[in-house]
Every structure is written in structure tokens, then in C-alpha cells.
Amino acid sequence: MPLKLKPAHRQELAAALAAATARGEAIAEVDVSALNRVIEHQPSDQTVTVEAGLTLGALQELLARHGQWLPVDPAHATRLTLRELIDANLSGPRRCGHGTIRDHVLGLTVALADGTLARSGGRVVKNVAGYDLAKLFIGAAGSLGVVTEVTFKLKPLPQAEEFLAAPGATLEAAAQLLEAVAGSALTPVVLDLHRLDPATPGVTVVAGFAGAREDVAWETARARALGFTAVGDLGHEPAFWSAPGAAHRLSVLPALVAPALRPLGAATFVARAGNGVIYHRGPAAAPAPPAPGPLAVMRRLKAAFDPAGIFPNPLPPPAPGAPPV
């Protein structure tokens, strides 16, 4: 029977991982929902240290009371734990203006397969002591350890935020609009392109602007002149992620979003045009073969941090007949 863990605290988790490693027993699931304390929130430092079982929604609610937020906005925040956010390196439409979670993590504590708790980084906004191990665990799908505690750098909630849309355009017209934005003085925090209904040929461009009231007024006036004629919102985001079927990801140069969308035909998609990231349904493109050098390093990392293989392994399996790492 696959091993499922639901630790009450991190020492219990660490001990269970050490035992699993000793027995060579794979862990099917770790439920960290009991590790949900806010350890320290110092609003004037713009940092917060929390346990990773807390949901993103609960964290944002706490921070909003102090006029702050963690500037990431993946879908379904109320049921998403911070551990899931970090494991999957999730982001949302505001990625265009605020980057991804790696840009906001100051420190990370991870329960490793050998039962130790390893911390890297710290609680201050600027810190270069030691290796930046946190980066390894972000997006690692829980394959190197279990994130138990994290310190984030926060931002003030913007004074104003407004969304505009250019609906129903052809892909060509949308591409021209995106080029116009890229060549302008605009600094959108959201620049999404989407098609949610396969029956509709048109695509919609959504732009969001945030900051001081005067800045937002200035930017939206400019954006309207460029062709964002309608009021917009972020309704496409939950709509896309709630729809059935697996979503696939493409990542291209920001200038190549439209050419990358063309071969998708009538598939539904949401594209972060400012970042060149496309999520789509329909058939997935064949994955590019991973480069051998970095892959060998990744495999050695996996073997070093999880010698008994108790965590999942997201790395592609070695080609048949390849020498063992």
C-alpha cells in the first residue's frame, strides 16, 4: 500500500521521511495542511514567514489587512497550498508585471529524504550568504524534498488596478496590437491573449495596469488609443482552468506568441503575451529532447537528495541502453 503522510509538525515529517528512506519505501502523498502557521509577519519589513501548508488565499487575506500582497496570482488560490504553489511554480496573469514565485522567495526550509531540515536564504530582503538552494526546490514537483516553511518578500497592494480588452480580433490584428504595446511606453502588469470558445474564430487581448491612480489613468488612456476599446477583466483565467481537459504549456520568445498560436487551430488557449508563455488544450506538441549536460546534473541532484527514491521523479527516464548515472 502506498505510503501517505499527514504530519502534525515538521519534526514528525522529517522522522517519517528518514524512516521511508531507510526502508526504501516510496511516498505517495504528503498532506502538509496541518503545517499552516504564520510564523512571522512584520509589515514594515515587507516580509512574511509562513508554514507551507497555509493556502495562498489565506495568506493573501492576512496580508491584505496590512495593504500588502504576495504578487503571484495563480487560479484557485483558496484551495492552493503554498507548497503546491512552489512545487509546481505556478503563476497567473500578473506574471507580466511581477514575475514568478522565484522572484519573491527569500528563504525556504525543506524536509529532506534523510530526515534533516535544510534552510537556505533568510528573512531579509537582501542576502547572499550560502548557495541559493531555494531555487532548486521551486518547480521541482516535490522530487527533492518537502517544502515546510517559506519567507516571502511582499509588495504593497496597488492603489488602483484597471483592465481593458480588445475583444474579437483576428490573430493577426491581435499580434499587431501586442507589437504596438511592446513599442509603447506602457508598463502593463497583465498582457494576456485568449480564446475560450473553439467555435469563435476571434481572440481577445486583455491588458491590466496597476499602481498610483494617476499612473493607471495615464496608462489606460494610452492603451485605449492603441485599440483597447472595451472594459476588461480576468474572468478568462478561472474559466480556462475550470474547463475540462489537460492544459499543455508552450514557452516562446514574447515576439513569437502569435506564430506559435497559429498551428493550434481552434484549440482554446490563454497566452501570457508579455512572457511568451502559452497554455492550451488540444494535442500537445512533442516535447523537445532535454539537453544532455543539464539533464545529467539534474539526475545527479535527484540521486544525491533522494537516494532511495521516496519522492516522485519528474525527470525524463534515461533512454534504453543508456549508462546509469
Binding site: K135, L136, R249, L253, N275, P287, G293
Partner: peptide, 26 residues
């Protein structure tokens, strides 16, 4: 010789572990 992180002609998302991130500051 290898390339870590985003390639000059590639998108910002890179599969696998963030080796670029752990090398920066090492």
C-alpha cells in the same frame, strides 16, 4: 559546455530543475 536556463532564442520556461538559479550566487 552546456546552457542553463533560458536560451537566447527560447522562452522563459525551462523544463527540469532551476540550475540557473542555484548557480547564480554560488
Amino acid at each position: 559546455v552546456c546552457w542553463l536556463g533560458t536560451r537566447p532564442d527560447g522562452g522563459e520556461e525551462v523544463d527540469g530543475y532551476d540550475l540557473r538559479g542555484v548557480v547564480i550566487g554560488s
